[in-house]
Design a protein around this nucleic acid. Structure first.
Lengths: 224, 224
DNA sequence: GTCTATATGGGGATAGAC
DNA sequence: GTCTATCCCCATATAGAC
């Protein structure tokens, strides 16, 4: 077996299983699917967290680069004024979705990986995610702020959080929509899902700013 | 120890731990926090899934009843025409958020429980959740459909899914917004978070319908 | 109803032969 | 680099004494 082959097999199997089953997937399951020995994980990645980090590093960096490249293209195209918010949201969502698996109609493992990354609560995973996305998040919020000058930064970031949440939940488990709608929505038609996500999020970002008050207690008193 | 006391202690401890740590929390952790013997879980609830079901049954039924009661009040208040969409969304979100813990400024365990319920992928939990929420979901979508006659059912349910995702993610882990915004947003101010959530989701629901095409390939070709 | 003790299985990690 | 064998920990669940 060529050097590096085992390492790659582990990475590929881990990526697929992490994306479908979550990062709690056992190393036994990963190495079983990869057809390699359990001890190989420890040899190549040190420990399980090392494997998780490696899976992230291989995909999430390039993914975010593609997003930012698409984002800057949209910004550049709109020499006068600002790009349409739909283009900004497309640049955020498309790169995660458009990389389909070979032919089985499944979302790529990168989509699931990304969704998992955003919904995981394991401390190690969380730290990795926020490191990976910090720069990208900031740039997106910059561009969005230029489109939505009436929003203060706090509300903008909060809305960005809502957007990430809707996107990530959809990517982690597209079946959820089918269940919720009792079969009415075909969650596998990701082109339609993306289009709906973009229009929904655009509407959300474009909503008038919330009237924010100083503190919670004041908010309660002045609400009525 | 009075009969039923142990059972209640377990339920309370489980609710709190499930809401903060997820349903993967061990029975040892639960019984340790409850101050009872491990074997008591099996005696009172049969098995772990039985405990999870019991925790759900105690809270999620009443929570949904409160939501639907608030929803029907809003519908009734708007004798002519339809209730404002903000009132509908408030009736969905407020009941989960407004039950604060005693004095430590933490979200109630019901909020976390609800968020976990919606983001969990464990099959048993998922089945319970969709059973618990099926009726409520249908009623909300009915009312929303009357407010948004231009949306077809599929898009309406999809948008409802996005709304649940944003709400659940926020409830599971309010700290996430703080991390994302590098400390700019104070996630513990739940009144402000709810207000922002409502206005964001209202904007999303009110967005113009997505132009849907027959198939993914057609969508791609006609996009430009 | 409550406890101790234990059965049984799965998890990550490693030592040491090859 | 790869493998076997094993260590040790933690999980759920149950049997049986009290």
């Amino acid at each position: 077996m060529a050097t590096g082959d085992t390492r790659l097999k582990i990475l590929d199997a881990a990526e697929k299983l992490f994306s479908t089953e979550g990062f709690g997937t056992s190393l036994r399951a990963v190495t079983g699917a990869a057809g390699v020995n359990i001890a190989a994980v420890n040899y190549h990645f040190g420990c399980k967290d090392g494997l998780v980090s490696a899976v992230f590093a291989r995909r999430l960096g390039p993914l975010n680069e593609e997003r930012r490249s698409l984002l800057e293209s949209a910004v550049a195209r709109a020499k006068h004024g600002h790009p349409p918010i739909e283009a900004v949201l497309e640049s955020l969502i498309r790169p995660a979705v458009d990389r389909w698996g070979a032919s089985d109609g499944q979302l790529s493992s990168i989509a699931g990986l990304l969704g998992r990354a955003h919904s995981e609560n394991d401390p190690h995973v969380r730290r990795l995610v926020f490191e990976q996305f910090a720069t990208t998040t900031r740039r997106y919020c910059e561009v969005l702020a230029s489109i939505l000058p009436d929003l203060d930064d706090a509300e903008l970031y909060t809305r960005f959080h809502f957007a990430i949440a809707a996107m990530a939940t959809t990517l982690v488990d597209p079946e959820r929509v089918g269940l919720l709608s009792d079969g009415l929505v075909d969650a596998r038609d990701m082109d339609t899902m993306v289009a709906r996500l973009v229009s929904f999020l655009a509407g959300g970002f474009l909503a008038p700013p919330t009237a924010v008050v100083a503190s919670a207690s004041v908010a309660k008193r002045s609400a009525k």
